[in-house]
Simulated scan of single mutants.
Amino acid sequence: MQPTNTLSFRRVWMAAGLQADHSRMRRSGVISGLLLAGLFLLTVTAGFAQRHDNDADDAFLPSPIRSVSTVPGNGDVNPYGVVFIPRDFQSGSGPLRRGDILVSNFNNAANLQGTGTTIVRIPQSGAQSLFFQGTTPLGLSTALGALRAGLIVVGNFPSKDGTFATATAGSLLVINNRGQWIQSFAGPEIQGPWDMALVDHGDRAIAFIANTLTGSIARLDFAVRASGLTLLRSKTIASGYMHRGDPVTFVVSPTGLVYDEHSGVLYVASTGDNAVFAINNAADRMTDAGMGRLVYQDNTHLHGALAMAEAPNGHLLVANSDGINSDPNQPSEIVEFTKGGTFVKQLSVDPAQGGAFGLAVRSTEDVVTFAAVDDNTASLLIWLLNSEE
């Protein structure tokens, strides 16, 4: 949904002194020599307090970048999904608080893909902690979301030996606010859940699922209670996206999903097609729209579109896998573009390729928080953008 708090961004990002093991994933959560600095230049419009001089290019220096290891005690690596706990989340007696960040891990300590069993909690201050640990077979994917009723939903796309050849269709797991597994959903519309857009309507919710095994997008409609979810109906609403296994990235398939409630459009980032598509009437349609309408295809800046999020200004942010249309001069990029398909800016989260994946944005009246994982260092990078009076 297009926020009422609209920001117009001009951004310059700088990274220096980043030392890491540049293999695909790192077993240790200890990050050596991480020095990051960032500069955001923002034009503030509706919803944020404005400077008295009404300068169209007010500059804001963000709070220091925070880097947090996503490696829990069992050694899981390869952080994928990222979600903020919403403001009115029903925490009950559980540990989660609004503004906390959850990160799902896809690999185990042996770095085998599709075998990660954990979700870590990163509070607004203090050390990370384990929120959830399941039992194998699990491979917790980028499909991670939170419902205000006090529920966490996460995609499970497990592999027996860390290869795509032994991957199974998987499921959606429902976890309560105390970090306890309470439900699983599987079926023909859940075929390797790789990413998800979770739309919360209180007592109802919609989960749009990107399926790797079928190259399709499914919509699952749920009734929501604090005790769990009830599946009301499911439907494939888009299909035809490139999908295949990959020895490095595990899969190449549709990934990032963003739903715009104002327009009813679901945006789909398809890694293999290296493009972003739009599905109209996504919450109501009962027919398959195919791949939908092409929104953004940019071989200069896109290098295998992955996870996607919406910025406060209505732009889309997409991570790049570097497994498609690779460019060593543009490693681990997150690209910003308009919904009309115009490139805006890009930034790198790691000097080596293959680091960018899950990302999320949280907006309040006076603060925007942007979080993005770096797979190469098994860490989460967090930026705070503060308004001025």
Rank of each mutant, 00 (worst) to 15 (best):
T45S: 07
T45C: 08
T45H: 05
A46K: 10
A46M: 06
G47N: 05
Q50S: 13
Q50V: 14
D53T: 09
N54K: 05
D55E: 15
A56I: 11
D57K: 06
A59K: 11
A59W: 14
A59Y: 07
F60M: 08
L61Y: 05
P62R: 07
P62L: 08
S63P: 02
P64F: 04
I65P: 09
I65S: 12
S67C: 01
S67Q: 03
S67I: 00
V68L: 14
T70K: 10
V71W: 00
P72H: 03
G73A: 07
N74M: 12
N74K: 11
G75S: 10
D76H: 09
Y80M: 02
G81E: 02
G81V: 01
V82W: 00
V83P: 07
V83A: 11
V83W: 12
V83E: 08
F84L: 08
P86R: 09
P86M: 12
R87F: 13
D88V: 09
Q90I: 05
G92I: 09
S93I: 03
S93C: 06
G94S: 15
G94Y: 15
P95R: 03
L96Q: 01
L96K: 03
R97N: 09
G99P: 08
D100P: 08
V103S: 10
V103W: 00
S104Y: 02
N105L: 15
N108H: 08
N111V: 11
N111I: 11
N111A: 15
N111Y: 15
L112V: 06
L112W: 12
Q113T: 05
G114S: 13
G114M: 12
T115P: 05
T115C: 04
G116A: 12
G116E: 01
T117A: 06
T117E: 13
T118E: 06
T118C: 07
T118I: 02
I122F: 00
Q124Y: 06
Q124S: 06
G126V: 07
A127W: 02
G134Y: 09
G134I: 06
G134C: 03
G134H: 06
T135I: 08
T136H: 02
T136S: 10
T136Q: 08
P137I: 10
P137C: 02
G139C: 01
A143N: 15
A143C: 14
A146C: 02
L147I: 12
R148F: 02
A149M: 00
G150C: 03
L151G: 09
L151H: 11
I152G: 00
I152D: 01
V154M: 10
N156K: 04
N156S: 06
F157Y: 15
F157E: 12
F157V: 12
P158K: 05
S159V: 04
G162M: 05
T163W: 01
T163D: 03
